[in-house]
């Protein structure tokens, strides 16, 4: 930290003006980032008439939750007018197992690759890591064929498998980098105490992994919940996840454009990940940076 307060040569009013300017710039930026969210919320609470008459930034004169209700229960996705709620549950049914399975596999992979190193462990890790970076377009075509052959086309189970397979490299990276910093002596001590591979994992390693488990769960949840490409490619129709449904609602060209419903649906889609971010922002940032800076 190199800050004006400590390191500025100026004193008095000049310093005060500088600080004032600093806060002004920061507040302007905050407004820039918040603006879309505020508009989204305020639009979702207006009636359609008010949207047409009023301005983007004006607050709703009459607050109504009709748009929310409509988006949740009645909005049309394609020809089905069942609201976004069934797609919300599709996303839940897809995200929860995929997050749990990929996190568990990442944990045990990371443990094996760091604490029970075998010949070629580094190569195995490097090959796994590579999967984090491929553009998924390159696997779309074969995957749709394989899912078809497995009878998993357009199913939630198929999406779970896809997300587990391509989430593995991230979770393995997280856990591997975390376990590298745990002293090997812990495993040696437990070996002498008579514990084996799985006992050490369950009784000693897993209980001290809470922070990285949180990072991994949050990262995977955000990725999987926000995914659109796999959802759109492999799960059309009634099994589509929420992002696909949202895009469908918004880009439907038939009928009157209901901006308030669009915004309500968008908020509903964004809410789970936003909630996770607000509640566990620290871990969210850790996941982001762990994904970008390798060790």
């Amino acid at each position: 930290m190199a800050d004006i307060q400590t390191y500025s040569h100026d004193a008095g009013w000049k310093h005060t003006v500088l600080r004032g300017l600093l806060y002004l710039v920061l507040i302007l930026f905050a407004a820039y980032y918040l603006f879309p969210l505020i508009v989204m919320i305020s639009t979702s609470l207006k009636s359609l008439d008010e949207i047409r008459e009023g301005s983007l930034i004006s607050l709703p004169r009459v607050v109504t939750f009709d748009a929310w209700n409509y988006a949740w229960n009645e909005a049309c996705v394609g020809v089905e007018c069942t609201g976004i709620k069934i797609y919300f549950w599709n996303s839940v049914k897809m995200a929860v197992p995929a997050v749990l399975i990929s996190t568990f596999l990442g944990a045990i992979n990371g443990y094996a690759l760091t604490k029970w190193r075998f010949k070629g462990a580094n190569i195995v890790f490097a090959l796994l890591l590579f999967g984090c970076f491929i553009p998924f377009q390159v696997v779309l075509l074969p995957m749709s064929q394989v899912l078809g052959k497995l009878g998993l086309a357009s199913s939630t189970a198929g999406l779970v498998m896809v997300h587990v397979v391509y989430g593995l490299c991230f979770t393995t990276l997280f856990f591997r980098n975390y376990y590298v910093s745990i002293p090997d002596e812990l495993v040696k001590a437990a070996t002498i105490d008579g514990a084996g591979f799985f006992t050490i994992f369950w009784r000693i390693i897993l209980p001290i992994s809470t922070p990285i488990i949180v990072v991994s769960v949050i990262w995977q949840f955000t990725q999987i919940w926000n995914d659109f490409l796999f959802g759109a490619s492999f799960a059309s129709g009634a099994n589509a996840p929420m992002t696909v449904a949202l895009n469908n609602i918004v880009n439907t060209t038939t009928g009157v454009k209901q901006y308030n419903v669009d915004m309500a649906a968008a908020l509903l889609t964004g809410l789970p990940t936003l909630l996770v971010y607000v509640l566990a922002g620290k871990y969210f940032v850790r996941g982001l940076t762990a994904g970008s800076v390798k060790g």
Binding site: P183, E185, L186, K188, A189, A190, T191, I192, D193, G194, A195, R203, I204, P207, I208
Partner: peptide
């Protein structure tokens, strides 16, 4: 196998199991 050698070891970093109480640490083996 180490566990059948009837030996015990004290490590430089102590290698105490961080998730267990002192009592648990001592009785784990």
């Amino acid at each position: 196998h180490p566990k059948d050698r009837n030996i015990a070891m004290v490590f430089q970093s102590y290698a105490l199991y961080p998730n267990m109480t002192v009592r648990k640490n001592i009785t784990f083996g």
